[in-house]
Design a protein around this nucleic acid. Structure first.
Lengths: 207, 207
DNA sequence: TAGATTGTTAATCGATTAACAATC
DNA sequence: TAGATTGTTAATCGATTAACAATC
């Protein structure tokens, strides 16, 4: 039905959502593409193009209704639906994700798995042994598995998670995961981000 | 001297570095653009283009020397130079970054700042009160400040860090920072990454 | 109405891929 | 040498920006 939307646009959606949510929180009721563009340091033309690829959310001569725009953006990304997450790896990063409050209401971490779960207390969140992973996934809905293990373990863990039936992986480990085509993988890498900063630091004023 | 390199290429450098480092660790001595491309799921043409924008690192008919390529990539990003980092915010994320071992030898976290540092123990890393930030930055070299505060505090904290003379910011807070043009900011957002995954989950097989 | 701002087409710009001569 | 693979140009593709008619 709708034509497929380019990856470049998809990557901007969360930023739009954040900015529009902020405006909503401030009590703004309408906003123009020009204002959004200023905040985000992009062109107004791009803002309109991007929104247009999903539908007609604005009103000529007026702008965009902030609440409607926020809701539409949430809808596009599915943020209104509930998402059950499990985390593999109860190290620093795994615990930081488990404790993070900023994802929004729809996201719930239901369990954390580790090879040595003994003595780890994460309050309401169950901490289980890796050996219980497949059984757990068979008995509970798991929308997203977060891989927060060391790089060496990631490939093996990803395979286990896929074997347990999970179709969506959020990968914090610094490894290229080779998985079946029907499994979605989104990588997030602290090192990569830091190295990009380093590049720009070290190549500030060429010549 | 050298023409400026496109942002698209810069973002791929850390992945190249990781893959080539992995091959080096495996004892490989040479590698072709075709093999790198297969591992990373890109085209060999792109790999050669990217490397060529920095110089002639390969040898026709042979390929690339793994050790040389790894060293060149590290050089381009400045990973061989030491980098002193401070972290603002000793919450889950700040502590996870402080404890992360995967950045490489050149990166050292020298201090963590928090509005309530009492009782937080990070081993060798000093945990100081925010009020000591400016004084600390005056007396110690600080290459990178990591912002790991809640979103609400980020803008204020960023201003303080810049005021203290730091020129490079690695921002984990979900906020658009408006800072002077000579300050480099690299954003990394867990929510944005998760939301992109969500989008693809919720728009799997249209039509 | 007059002014403002969207939605959308067309033009520009940049990034990716294909192709192949150079050369090891 | 013959085979392989880079370095690099040219062609294609995709993403961004400019411009303006539509319309509130």
């Amino acid at each position: 039905m709708e034509k497929t939307v380019s990856p470049a646009i998809i990557k901007r959606l969360p930023r739009y959502y954040r900015v529009v949510s902020h405006l909503f929180g401030e009590g703004q009721t309408k906003v123009s593409s020009r204002v959004i563009a200023q905040i985000m340091d992009v062109t107004a033309s791009q803002v309109r193009q991007d929104f247009c690829s999903f539908g007609d959310y604005g009103q000529q001569g007026y702008g965009y209704d902030v609440k409607k725009l926020k809701d539409e953006l949430a809808n596009i990304m599915g943020l209104n639906k509930p998402h059950n997450m499990i985390i593999i790896g109860a190290g620093n990063i795994g615990r930081a994700i488990a404790g993070y409050k900023g994802f929004g209401d729809g996201f719930e971490v239901t369990a954390v798995f580790d090879i040595a779960p003994e003595g780890i207390d994460l309050g309401k969140i169950k901490v289980l042994n890796m050996s219980e992973l497949k059984d757990y996934c068979g008995k509970n809905p798991v929308d997203i598995a977060v891989i927060a293990t060391p790089g060496k373990a990631a490939a093996q863990v990803a395979a286990e998670v896929v074997d347990a039936g999970v179709k969506n992986i959020w990968n914090f480990a610094p490894t290229e995961l080779a998985l079946p085509g029907d499994v979605l993988v989104e990588n997030i890498s602290m090192s990569e981000s830091l190295y990009v900063l380093c590049y720009y630091m070290n190549n500030r004023q060429e010549g």
